[in-house]
Lab assay of single mutants.
Amino acid sequence: EKVLKRMREIKNELLQAQNPSELYLSSKTELQGLIGQLDEVSLEKNPCIREARRRAVIEVQTLITYIDL
């Protein structure tokens, strides 16, 4: 939940920025750090946690791809 919240904050900052190119590098670095945090999530045998992590990774990767474009 914390990762998704921060990812959404970054997305809003990028969309509202007057000059978003200044934010791209720092935002991309922070998003890659969020992916690292998601990699540390213990998936164990809980399919709900596994699915939530998968969705979060996809959302963060989508935003990274947007920045790259």
Rank of each mutant, 00 (worst) to 15 (best):
L38C: 08
R53M: 11
R53C: 15
L63F: 09
E22Q: 12
L23V: 12
S21N: 11
S42D: 15
L34C: 06
K28H: 04
G33A: 13
S21C: 03
L63D: 03
S26Q: 14
V57M: 07
I67N: 03
E30S: 04
C48D: 14
L38W: 03
I35K: 04
A52R: 09
D68W: 00
I58D: 14
C48M: 10
E44Q: 05
E30I: 01
R50K: 11
R54H: 09
C48I: 12
N46K: 07
L23I: 03
K28I: 12
V3A: 05
I49S: 12
L25V: 10
Q37L: 11
Y66A: 08
V57E: 13
R53L: 09
N19A: 08
R54Y: 07
R55P: 04
I64R: 08
E22Y: 11
R50A: 12
K11R: 11
T65F: 15
N46P: 08
E13D: 10
T29L: 12
T29P: 00
E9F: 01
E59G: 01
Q37V: 09
Q37I: 14
L43D: 14
I35F: 01
V60S: 05
N19H: 02
S26N: 02
L38M: 06
L15R: 06
I58R: 15
L31V: 00
V41L: 14
R50E: 14
K45W: 08
D68K: 05
A52S: 09
K11D: 00
V41I: 15
E13L: 08
N12S: 06
N19R: 07
V60A: 13
V41K: 07
I10F: 00
N12V: 12
V60C: 14
E40G: 09
Q61S: 11
E13F: 00
V57K: 13
T62K: 15
R8N: 11
L25I: 02
I35Y: 03
L23F: 04
N46Y: 04
E44N: 10
I49R: 08
T29I: 15
C48Q: 14
S26L: 05
I35P: 00
R8W: 07
L23E: 03
V41S: 12
L23A: 06
M7L: 12
I10G: 02
E13K: 09
A52K: 13
E40H: 04
L43R: 13
E22G: 09
I49F: 14
K11L: 02
M7G: 02
P47Q: 11
V41N: 15
L34V: 00
P20S: 11
L25H: 06
E13Q: 12
L31R: 00
R8G: 09
L34N: 00
R55I: 06
T65Q: 12
L15Y: 15
I35T: 01
E40Q: 13
Q37R: 09
L63W: 04
N12I: 05
I10Y: 00
V60G: 12
Q16E: 13
L25S: 08
N46G: 07
E30A: 02
I10T: 00
R8I: 09
I58F: 08
I49T: 10
R8M: 10
N12T: 14
E44M: 13
E51I: 03
K11E: 07
E40A: 12
Q16R: 11
R50N: 11
V57P: 04
P20Y: 02
G33M: 10
Y24L: 08
L31Y: 02
L63H: 01
N12Q: 11
C48E: 15
S27M: 13
K45N: 15
G33C: 10
L69K: 15
E30H: 01
Q61P: 04
R53F: 04
L34Y: 01
Q16V: 09
R54C: 08
Q16L: 11
Q61D: 04
T65N: 12
E44L: 08
E40W: 03
T62M: 10
K45T: 12
E22F: 01
K45I: 11
E59T: 02
R54W: 07
N12Y: 06
I10S: 02
E44C: 12
V60Q: 02
I64C: 03
E9N: 01
N46F: 04
E51A: 05
S21T: 10
Y66Q: 15
A56S: 03
N12A: 13
R54M: 12
E59C: 03
T62F: 01
R8P: 00
I49C: 13
D39F: 04
K11Q: 11
Q16W: 09
E22K: 12
R53Q: 15
S21H: 13
G36K: 15
R55Q: 14
E9K: 03
L23Y: 07
N46T: 14
I67Q: 00
C48R: 13
Q37H: 01
V3R: 00
E13M: 13
E9V: 04
D39V: 08
Y24G: 07
Q32D: 04
I35G: 02
N46E: 13
Q37G: 07
S21Y: 03
R53D: 12
L63P: 02
G36T: 14
E44S: 14
S26E: 10
P20W: 01
V3S: 03
L15H: 04
E51R: 06
R55L: 10
D39G: 14
I35Q: 01
L23C: 13
S26P: 04
I10E: 01
Q32N: 09
N19I: 04
L15F: 15
V3D: 06
P20R: 07
E59Q: 10
I35V: 07
E44F: 01
Y66E: 15
E59D: 06
E59I: 00
E30F: 01
S21M: 09
I58P: 04
K45A: 14
P47Y: 09
K28N: 02
E22H: 07
P20F: 03
P20D: 10
Y66H: 14
T29M: 09
I49D: 15
L34Q: 00
D39A: 08
N12G: 06
L23M: 06
A56D: 02
A56E: 03
A52F: 03
S21R: 09
Q32V: 09
I10V: 02
L15V: 06
P47H: 08
T62C: 09
L15K: 10
Y24F: 09
E40V: 08
P47E: 13
S27P: 00
A52N: 02
E44G: 08
Q32W: 04
T65W: 05
E59M: 02
Y66T: 15
S27A: 15
Q61F: 02
Y66L: 08
E59K: 05
V41R: 11
L15E: 15
R55D: 08
Q37K: 07
S27T: 08
Y24C: 03
E9Y: 06
G33V: 09
R54F: 01
E9P: 00
E30D: 01
N19Q: 09
G33D: 12
N19S: 06
E9S: 02
N46L: 06
I64Q: 08
I10M: 01
E22T: 09
V3H: 01
D39Q: 15
G36W: 07
I67K: 01
L31S: 00
Q16Y: 10
L63Y: 00
R55T: 10
E40T: 06
S27I: 14
P20M: 06
Q37C: 08
I10C: 01
E44A: 12
P20V: 05
V3N: 00
N46R: 03
E30Q: 07
E44Y: 10
V41Y: 08
I49Q: 11
Y24S: 00
K45M: 15
L63T: 01
E51M: 07
L43T: 13
Y24P: 00
Q61E: 12
S26I: 06
E13N: 12
N46D: 13
I35E: 02
Q32Y: 07
L14F: 03
A56K: 01
I67V: 07
P47F: 02
Q61V: 02
V60L: 12
A17G: 04
N19E: 11
E30R: 02
V41M: 13
E9I: 03
R54P: 02
E30V: 01
E40D: 13
G36L: 11
Y66D: 13
V60I: 09
S42E: 14
T29K: 15
S42Y: 14
R54I: 03
R8A: 12
L15P: 00
Q37D: 07
I58H: 15
L31A: 02
S42I: 10
P47A: 09
K28W: 05
I67R: 01
N12D: 15
K45R: 08
K11T: 03
V60T: 06
I64V: 04
Q32L: 12
I58L: 14
V3L: 15
T65Y: 05
